[in-house]
Design a protein around this nucleic acid. Structure first.
Length: 947
DNA sequence: GCAAGGTC
């Protein structure tokens, strides 16, 4: 782009123009100002915000003399939230949040920054954006543009792209200004809106549905605040990792195995030889081999190999590595580590702690940084050795392959022997940063390894010994060790008699619970969160009482398990990382112009809205899952049900009024205020979005007066030929209402199993209406009688979901008559929708009977296979979802729609050569080596095994 | 009372 002027009017004379420069944070404004001004005549003054001062200096950009005004924001200047009318939780149906008006605004605590920008922008001709060079930075750039151009429409807008805060990069960028990238900003707008709508809708839904319905108080840590059961596209997959590992562990069944061990002691030392078969699960087989060895115990050396081994120092330090290593070495949580690191950064002792970069740029003066550390009492002498060319310890740091183009790896920026205001943690984190940095610029440790293979009666054994020749970086990086042991000298063909030769038993172990370092690794691999937010997502699990941390391991609470179980039983993967991964991929497409912003936003929200509606329709799954862990609650507060006015005098007790109420889950009912003495209730259709008692009275129903209710139905949930607006009567005269109750179902559920809140009166109005009229009703899709909408041939997947819902509701609450009506639907389904093609392979999640594998003939899922219960016809899930990692093993006692918990893992290996854990169905299951802790392999193939 | 993303 050409830079030729931008107008001289308003400048300080001599053709000089005023240029407003804005960085993402105060430290960048300061650094860039210092670099460009060379600290000559650099003036700083306070702005309206106490953190964001304004630097002033003169500079020439492509021949144009400029007076630079350099200030900053603090990350995002604006927030996205719903319009005020949707902000209160009871203001609307949560599903409305998928299309509710949202607005971007500058929040209260950023108004000072906005005012500074406005004041300075009025004086300027150019606006140069120095935001971080990533998508979020680009989005913040447009927030700044929005604020500045509102007060000065003539601003010439430019973007500086810099790869590091070093002189050459900064000076290059200011002479090569570009246009801001709207596509990048669009991608962030999409992400923000999706996160908000999904997060708020599911959070309100599950909080209002469950928080008062169960006795949760003892298990939650609300500190007097209202309990919120939040859902978020990052926090839930994080919870998913914790729950999944916990269930894998609980489902593990220990298994005995046998192994042959051999040792040989000589004057030079002792060697331990490991059996090359590792171990066998068959005792008889192991015994036979052992006896062969004992009969001919002479060992013959078949191979001796000497090799030099290197152990490399770590790559330069990124945020995630800092968090992981502080967790492992210092036993500090990621959240606390970041707090301490931010302190050290703000006090000037370390570089910016939120960075993805794990390579130093070539321009970095690494030796100067090392030189600063020479005076330290503990690592100063090592720093001196590093700088001594004769010592030969220096090595240019490795390249970890990541670069966020905005920040260098975390490194010390100022020497300190410790400050008086530092806590123990400040000392530890500073020490880790310095030692890590010094290790990065060091030679790897060198060792000599000897591997010896022997043969005893045809069985192969091996032993490895190691001697460390040069410790190098290990001298300063005290957190790592490289244990080795000496073994005697052996030569090819040598024979010896083992000192011991034993047959030992062992038992397979479950995979360990996740540590914070493991969890961060899982999140990083799955793209959950950013370097700046991952620790927040982990903390959120603890704050929401979804998990606890015990001895550095994460354990899901009952609440965390119940929520994951509920969605898992629905067949949804809302707790898996795929949703976020898909969003990330869509964002990428938006940012490179492959997809339009509106297209991605509409498609994603449409899908998630459908998912939300479906999840809500099958909320009984959440209730069942919660019921596995918690007692139902008797609580009924004003918050629990929203009263909407008197409808009539109770026709059962004749004492109290019947009032319209909206339950926490959004469903409506008309109940007697005499509850629990009087349990009269009229359940209303589940498809109502709004209901208001009117002043109109029914002329038919007695005893009167019965006030009519103005209903608003959700359009997509009722048949097309019904009006969304309906003035109805609950007295019994209203056929339309009866029909919609029959078609859509009601909010009644779980009545017989819930003694506290349950209003399972079999004579209640709606129950009677539903069971009596079901057989006569027409299908809402094809409008034919003889079958109901939930088994309509043209809507197989919906029918599956609905059948499941009704089946459980009716089966529990309404006895035999309803059960027989479900039975009546068995044949049509098999004949119409499914071709039986397999025998039972999993038990039904509802009744435990064997399931049959059927093939769907529906238009929506042609050829897709699903499990159907032979006895109760419960839909038990799509085959491809059950076998493709859609579910996880559960602890025994919990039915899963995928499979019941069984032997899942064999941490001892012994099956196949991969060494991976293998589940009962043959799928690999993630785990971690229990010898060295490395998640990339298991103990049976651990290189440190036996050392 | 809700998300996740910036940053102090």
């Amino acid at each position: 782009m050409a830079h030729g002027g931008g107008g001289g009017g308003g400048g300080r004379g001599g053709g000089r123009i005023n240029v407003l420069n804005v960085a993402e944070k105060p430290s960048v404004a300061k650094s860039v100002s210092e670099i460009l001004s060379r600290n000559q005549q650099l003036i700083s003054r306070r702005g309206r915000s106490q953190f964001n001062c304004i630097f002033e200096f003169d500079y020439v950009i492509r021949g144009q003399p400029c007076h630079m005004l350099f200030t900053s924001v603090l990350g995002h200047l604006m927030e996205l939230d719903f319009d005020d009318r949707y902000r209160k939780w009871n203001s609307c149906d949560p599903v409305d949040l998928y299309h509710a008006t949202v607005r971007k605004f500058v929040p209260e605590d950023k108004l000072n920054i906005q005012r500074t920008l406005e004041e300075e922008a009025r004086k300027c001709q150019w606006l140069i954006l120095w935001l971080d060079c990533d998508r979020e930075g680009e989005n913040i750039a447009f927030e700044v543009i929005d604020v500045c151009t509102k007060v000065n429409r003539n601003l010439d807008i430019k973007r500086a792209h810099f790869s590091a805060l070093i002189e050459r990069a900064i000076k290059d960028s200011v002479q090569n200004l570009v246009m801001p990238n709207k596509l990048f900003a669009d991608a962030v707008d999409v992400r923000q809106e999706i996160d908000l709508r999904i997060g708020a809708s599911f959070t309100r839904f599950q909080t209002m549905l469950l928080s008062n319905a169960f006795v949760l108080d003892a298990s939650t840590n609300t500190d007097g605040r209202n309990l919120v059961l939040s859902y978020g596209p990052c926090q839930f997959p994080t919870l998913g990792f914790v729950v999944e590992r916990y269930w894998e562990r609980e489902a593990h069944e220990p298994e005995d195995f046998w192994t042959i061990n051999c040792t040989h002691r000589s004057e030079e030392g002792t060697a331990t030889f490991n059996w090359m078969r590792n171990h066998l699960f068959d005792y008889a087989c192991a015994l036979v081999i052992y006896e062969l060895c004992v009969d001919e115990p002479t060992a013959t050396v078949t191979d001796v190999r000497h090799q030099e081994k290197l152990k490399y120092p770590p790559y330069p330090l990124s945020t995630i590595e800092l968090e992981k290593r502080a967790s492992r070495y210092l036993h500090m949580s990621a959240e606390h580590t970041m707090k301490v690191a931010e302190d050290l950064y703000n006090w000037g002792f370390i570089s910016y702690p939120r960075t993805e970069t794990d390579r130093f740029s070539l321009e970095t003066d690494l030796r100067a940084m090392v030189s600063e550390q020479q005076g330290h009492e503990r690592w100063g002498s090592y720093a001196q050795r590093l700088l001594d060319p004769e010592a030969g310890v220096w090595r240019n740091p490795g390249n970890g392959g990541h670069d966020d183009k905005a920040h260098p790896p975390i490194h010390p920026t100022r020497f300190s022997n410790g400050e008086s205001n530092w806590t123990q943690q400040h000392h530890k984190v500073y020490e880790l940063v310095v030692r890590h940095f010094l290790a990065c610029v060091s030679q790897p440790a060198k060792g000599a390894e000897t591997a010896v293979h022997v043969d005893i009666a045809g069985e192969k054994f091996s032993s490895t010994g190691r001697v460390i020749l040069e410790k190098n970086y290990l001298d300063v990086y005290i957190y790592e060790s490289w244990a080795g042991s000496l073994i005697p000298t052996y030569t090819h063909g040598q024979q010896f008699m083992p000192t011991t030769l034993t047959l030992d038993s062992g038992v397979t172990r479950p995979p360990p619970l996740l540590t914070e370092a493991d969890l961060l690794t899982c999140m990083d691999k799955a793209g959950i969160g950013t370097d700046a937010t991952m620790h927040d997502h982990i903390k959120k699990l603890l704050d929401r009482s979804y998990a606890i941390k015990e001895n550095a391991y994460f354990i899901p609470t009952d609440l965390g398990q119940a929520l994951v179980m509920g969605y898992d039983d629905m067949g949804y993967e809302l707790w898996k990382p795929y949703l976020r991964a898909r969003m990330e991929s869509d964002m990428k497409d938006v940012s490179i112009g492959n997809k339009r912003r509106a297209e991605v936003l509409d498609a994603c929200l449409q899908q998630m809205k459908a998912c939300f509606i479906d999840a809500r329709a099958r909320k009984e799954k959440l209730f069942e899952a919660m019921g596995n862990f918690f007692e139902r609650s008797n609580r009924s507060s004003n918050n629990d049900q929203t009263s909407g006015g008197v409808v009539r005098k109770c026709d059962l007790c004749h004492n109290s009024d019947m009032v319209l109420k909206q339950k926490p889950d959004g469903n409506f009912m008309v109940g007697c205020l005499g509850y629990p003495l009087c349990r009269n209730v009229v359940w209303l259709p589940g498809s109502i979005s709004q209901a208001v008692v009117t002043g109109n009275t029914c002329l038919t129903c007695t005893p009167g007066p019965v006030f009519k209710i103005q209903f608003k139905f959700r359009r997509l949930e009722i048949p097309p030929d019904y009006n969304a607006d309906h003035l109805g009567c609950i007295g019994g005269c209203d056929d339309t209402l009866k029909q919609l109750i029959d078609i859509c179902g009601t909010g009644a559920r779980n009545t017989s199993s819930t003694p506290g809140r349950g209003r399972g009166n079999p004579t209640s109005s709606s129950s009677g209406q539903r069971s009596n009229s079901r057989g006569r009703m027409a299908c809402i899709y094809c409008r034919q009688t003889g079958h109901s909408s939930d088994v309509c041939p043209s809507h197989i997947s919906q029918s599956n979901r609905r059948t499941q819902g009704f089946g459980q509701q009716n089966g529990r609450g309404q006895g035999n008559s309803t059960s027989s009506s479900i039975g009546g639907r068995i044949n049509p389904r098999n004949q119409d929708f499914g071709r039986q093609n397999g025998e039972a392979s999993i038990p039904c999640s509802s009744c435990g009977s064997p399931c049959t594998l059927l093939t769907s003939n529906s238009a929506r899922n042609p050829g897709r296979k699903f499990y159907s219960c032979q006895a109760c016809r419960n839909f038990n899930g799509w085959e491809d979802m059950l076998s493709g990692g859609g579910s996880v093993p559960r602890p025994s006692g919990f039915a899963s729609n995928a499979r019941r918990g069984g032997r899942a893992n064999r941490s001892g290996g012994g099956h196949g050569s991969s060494g991976a854990f293998v589940s009962a169905t043959g799928e690999p299951v993630s785990g971690r080596c229990f010898i060295c802790g490395d998640p990339s392999h298991f103990a049976n193939v651990c290189p440190n095994r036996g050392r």
